[in-house]
Structure formats: C-alpha cells, structure tokens
Design a protein around this nucleic acid. Structure first.
Length: 565
DNA sequence: TATAACGATTTT
DNA sequence: AAAATCGTTATA
C-alpha cells in the first residue's frame, strides 16, 4: 500500500471511530465528511458508507475490477473481510485493497448470497415467482432454445415474470428491497437508499446508480441523506457496464420519465400475461347441465354431450310456450306481408292464364281467317303497275346487306334471314313441357342431344316452308290505317304477292311470342310462390318460433301489416 | 412508442 | 461451459 493511501485510510479509520458509519449526517460521505457527491464514489459492501475515490485512492478503473469492496474501517474490525476482485482482470491488476468494484450487480450477488436470485425483478412471493416451469407457450418461451426458438429475445417466460415488479411494492420495500426497483420515482429510490441497512438484496438497483447523473441527483434530493452506492461525475468512469457508456446521454429528467414508462409497460405486460394465465387456468368448472354436479370437460361447459342437450331441451321447454302464445296473440308483420304477396301472385297467375287463353283464341281466329281465305278466288288484276312508284326507294337486306328493289324486298329478306338462321342452333337438353300443344320446335338433335328451342313457326332450321301452289290466293286480311281491318282479304296469287309474304307465319309467331312471355311470367310467379311458402313454413316451426320475433318498439303506433297496392 | 435484438451478467 | 435473463439500444 502506498504511504499516502495508507495515511488516508488511517484518517478514515479515525473518523470512523468517532462518528461511525451509521452516524453520518445527511449527505455527508467519505472520510472527508463532505457533502460532495459529484465525484466518483465507491460504497463499502459492509457498512454501506460511500467514499470518494480520490479520498481513498481508488480510481474508477480500479473500481471496475472490484467485485466486493470493504472500507478500511470494516476490514480492520473484521479481518475476514477482504476486497474481492473479479476473476478475469482482477488477477492481473493491482491488488491494492481499495478498489471499487464496478458492477452493482456484483454487490448484490454477494449481498444476497442467501437469496439465490439474480434478479431484482423478483418479489419471491407472487405466483409467478413461485412458478418453476416455463409455459412453453408465450412469445418468450417460444424464443427459447429449449422450445426450439432462435434465442433472440432472451427473456423470462411471461408467466414467470414477477407480478409485483413495477407495481406498488412500496409497502414491502423494507422487507423486499428488490421490489423497490419497480417504482422508479426518485423519492422512492431515495428512501430505499436511506434504508441502506437492509442489505442490499437489491442489487440491481445499484446499477442504476451507476449512472452518474442519476445517482448524484438522487442523493442530493434524498431527505434522509443516505447515499447511493457510487457516483461519479464523469460519465464514462464509474460505469463498468457498457450500457452505461452507451446510454450516457440521458438527463436525469429523462430517466425519470423513462422509468415511469417502464412501469406502465410492465403493467401492460402483466395484463397480457394474465390473459395467458386465464387460458391456462384449467381448474375444472362445474357442468352446466341441469342438476349435474360433475366437473365440466376441458374447454367445455358440460361434462358430456348429454348434459348439453339436456340443458338445451330444458331451455326449449321454458322458452317455447310463451313464444307460441306470443305468436298467436300478435301477428307477425312478415307473415302478413307474405300472405299479401301470395294473394298478389295468385292474381297475377290468373291473369297470365287468361291471357294465354286469349292467345289460344287468337290462334283459332287466325286458323279461321286462313281457312276462309282459301275459298277466295284469285283476283285477275295486275298489280305490276304500282311497283313502279316506289322504284326510287333503295333498300338493303338487314341480313346480307345486299341492295334490293322494293318489289322483292320482303321476300328476299325473309328468305335471307331463314338461310342464316338455319345455320345456327338454339338447343336445350330439356324438352319443352307446357300444357297444350307446344309452340316450340323441339326438334331433337341426336348428336348434340338437345332440343331446338325456336318457335316452331320461326324455325327455318327444322321446318321447311310449305310449297305454294300456283292457284293459291294470298288471303291476308287487308287493313287501312295500319291496324283497322276492312274485312277484305288480299286476293292476289300467293306466289306473287310481295306485300304479304308469309303473313300467316308472322302472325302466328307474334301470338306465340306473347304466349312465351306469359309462360315465362307464370314460371317466375311459381318460383316466388314457392319461396314464400318455404319461408312461411320455416317461420312456424319450432326453430322459427325460437328465432323469429317482431318487436313493436313504439306502442303508440302499433305496427300494421302493410297493405298491398 | 412498442417491439426486436443482443451483449453482458448471473445462475446452474 | 451452458443456460437464463437483464438492461439497454436499434429498429419498425
């Protein structure tokens, strides 16, 4: 030991003898008894007193190598006390007795030698602390190598994270100093320090003190004036930990803030953990089955399927009768709507039927007209003359686009259309099934196995135009003003009549198209009727009764079934 | 601001 | 020496 150092130690001892470590006044430290806490300091692991590094000849560097530091006074009183160094570097480094150690953690480890935990984050009492096995399900567990994880997160199982860490453990502070960590407010920390005798189970805490700014501030503010373990003005110095070096820039304020954030985060995490716990909680619950006292199966409310069905049944017995009563007493709006709809549909169906009948009648009329026309004799007049009037009109075939003269236009277009139309097919795999004689072609194509769906009268593909004899008369009823029949018929030879070419066919097609429309409408109405009947049937069933209800929210204006227009 | 990442320390 | 996990920084 260097002479000067020894002198200082002696000085220290003298002072100690007089005042003793416990007798220190507020905020007085070290052998010099000054209140200065802005320089690097090291704390005795026995008496808890703090010493200025320069007063006792310990540099920050030295301190970094010390695991356990005991002041001269303590060592004198207890010969077994020996400054301990960290294994690696300490061996090579100087051995002088006063070195301070760096890591508070280490302090703690020694101090808590009785308590095995590494962490100040354990209260040791909560269920999480008592837990010995990892849940293997939380994100932290999944990260662990033993659960096949990448070991990147490296955190303790969530279910094992202390429940009291970060929450108000203040009451327990004295007994469980570690917990104080959680509340990071300065006052608490200070308090904690003041209770220094509690020995240091709280090591981790100290780490914080390592932060120079932090530590000094705490101490200065501390009402009781005890001290933090070490402090130093210079950032780099006191901290042996890299963290500190890295984190240097924080101002004390910042730190406090951060501490609070940490606490809130911890709180939040705790809730998450509680969720997991809840899930995990497999205490059996009693079966919900009526009268059943068995425990429910896991993840079920019931001990068996039978119990579940039993409960459902009893519920039906309980709920159904009033439902039925309600159903009978108050009409369901939708039900009324459906009834109206059905009526409307039936009316429309009737209309369709009537129209179809009318159309059939028209067919018969047409047949009669044609029949009558056959008995008319050909008029010998020459119609060639009037052709010339309209010669100027040029027409184009709508099908092939060829230019036509008025005379043969109708004939050409009809034939041209038939030619093209015959080249395509309109098929369905179903034969038409409607009452009466079908107006559809329904020619069966054996190769494609489809029925032709053209109107019979308009199907050039499967129906040939009837041959017209030279003596046949046209017979088309003549009209004036387009629609008014005169009672006369065209008496031109059918073969030559260009005005009324295929008039029977077109008239028949017209009627048939209307029939098709009526049938389609009828089909649609049948579909609607079926749907309504199905929904009505469902509504009256047990299930419907249980599920369906009309609620009258406004008793002053009761719901009225809408009237059909 | 929350989360992921990771060197470091502590425990086994 | 390996596993556990802390405390801090980096990153999203």
């Amino acid at each position: 030991m260097l002479p000067e150092r020894q002198a200082k130690v002696e000085q220290l001892i003298r002072i100690m003898d007089h005042e003793g470590p416990g007798g220190a006044y507020e905020q007085e430290y070290c052998i010099c008894r000054s209140k200065d806490s802005t320089r690097f300091m090291i704390g005795c692991d026995n008496c808890e007193e703090w010493y200025h590094g320069d007063c006792i000849g310990v540099t920050q560097k030295d301190a970094e190598l010390i695991k356990h530091f005991y002041c001269a006074s303590c060592r004198e009183q207890d010969a077994s006390l020996e400054i301990k160094y960290k294994h690696k570097k300490s061996s090579s480094k100087e051995k002088h007795s006063f070195h301070k150690h760096s890591s508070d953690r280490e302090f703690r480890s020694r101090e808590d030698s009785n308590s095995k935990k590494k962490s100040s984050r354990r209260c040791g009492e909560c269920t999480a602390c008592h837990r010995t096995e990892d849940c293997a399900r939380c994100d932290y567990c999944k990260d662990m190598k033993k659960f096949g994880g990448p070991n990147k997160i490296r955190q303790k199982c969530r279910l094992r994270q202390c429940l009291n860490f970060g929450l108000n453990m203040t009451s327990k502070r004295s007994e469980k100093p570690e917990c104080t960590l959680t509340t990071e407010t300065e006052s608490i920390r200070t308090e904690y320090y003041s209770g220094a005798h509690d020995d240091d189970d709280d090591d981790d805490y100290m780490d914080m003190d390592d932060d120079p700014e932090y530590g000094s501030e705490n101490i200065e503010k501390s009402p009781k004036g005890k001290r933090g373990r070490k402090k130093s003005l210079s950032d780099s110095g006191s901290a042996k930990k890299k963290y500190k070096k890295r984190g240097r820039k924080h101002s004390p304020d910042k730190k406090t803030k951060k501490a609070k954030e940490n606490a809130s985060e911890l709180k939040r995490k705790r809730f998450e953990v509680e969720d997991i716990r809840e899930i995990e909680n497999d205490e059996p619950q009693q079966c919900f089955g009526p009268g059943c006292i068995e425990p429910a199966r896991p993840n079920s409310k019931y001990c068996s399927d039978a119990c579940g069905l039993k409960l459902a049944k009893s519920r039906i017995y309980e709920l159904l009768p009033p439902k039925i009563q309600q159903w009978q007493s108050s009409p369901c709006v939708t039900e009324e709507n459906n009834k109206k709809m059905l009526e409307k549909i039936r009316r429309e169906q009737l209309e369709c039927r009537q129209k179809l009948a009318e159309l059939d009648l028209k067919h018969q009329e047409l047949d009669g007209t044609i029949e009558r026309a056959k008995h008319v004799s050909i008029a010998p007049e020459q119609d060639e003359k009037d052709n010339e009037d309209d010669l100027e009109l040029s027409l184009y075939c709508v099908t092939c686009g060829a230019e036509l003269n008025q005379k043969g236009a109708l004939r050409h277009m009809e034939k041209c259309f038939s030619k093209f139309e015959a080249q395509t097919s309109f098929g369905s795999i179903y034969k038409t099934r409607i009452e009466g004689n079908s107006m559809f072609c329904d020619y069966y194509n054996t190769q494609q196995k489809v029925y032709c769906k053209r109107l019979k009268v308009l199907c050039p593909e499967h129906t040939k135009e009837p041959k017209v004899g030279p003596e046949e008369v046209c017979g088309c009823p003549l009209v004036i003003h387009v629609f008014k029949e005169t009672g006369e018929v065209c008496r031109a030879p059918k073969k030559k009549c260009n005005k009324h070419y295929c008039w029977e066919k077109l008239r028949r097609a017209e009627i048939d198209l209307e029939r098709v429309r009526q049938w389609l409408k009828l089909d649609d109405l049948f579909e609607q009727e079926r749907n309504i009947r199905v929904s009505m049937a469902n509504r009256v069933g047990v299930l419907g009764l249980m599920l369906h209800q009309t609620v009258d929210h406004d008793p002053m204006n009761p719901i009225r079934p809408p009237t059909m227009e």
